[in-house]
Amino acid sequence: MKQSLFRTVAIAGALFSASLGAFAQSYPTKTVTIVAPFSPGGSADGIARVIARELG
């Protein structure tokens, strides 16, 4: 019982400490360029425009 609890706490601590680096990033740090490889007016272009609007 104690060994199982210790193992669970150790795994949770390792996962938590591994994820701390993700919080330090500030994305994006420069302009993001989206390339839609198809002609304007198609579905890929529409989706790219919606995503670009959400990114700011």
Rank of each mutant, 00 (worst) to 15 (best):
I34H: 01
A48N: 03
G41H: 11
I11K: 01
I11H: 04
S4M: 14
V35Q: 08
F23I: 00
S4C: 08
K2S: 13
S26Y: 05
A12R: 04
Q25P: 00
I51T: 14
A24Q: 07
F6L: 13
L20G: 06
V35G: 00
A18C: 10
A44D: 00
K30T: 14
P40D: 07
E54W: 11
A18K: 04
P40R: 13
Q25C: 08
T8H: 00
K30V: 11
A48Y: 03
A12T: 01
L15F: 12
T8Y: 07
G13Y: 09
A52V: 04
G46F: 13
E54N: 13
P28Y: 01
V9T: 09
S19D: 14
F16E: 06
G56Y: 03
A52C: 04
S26V: 11
K2L: 13
R7D: 06
G13K: 04
L5N: 03
A52K: 13
R49C: 10
G13R: 09
S26R: 04
A12F: 07
P28Q: 05
K2Y: 07
I11D: 01
L15S: 11
T29L: 08
K2H: 12
G13T: 12
K2M: 11
A44G: 03
G46E: 14
P40E: 02
I34M: 03
F23M: 02
S4D: 10
F6S: 07
I34C: 05
T33L: 09
A48M: 06
A44I: 11
T31K: 05
K30N: 14
A10F: 03
A36L: 03
Q3A: 07
T8E: 11
G56D: 05
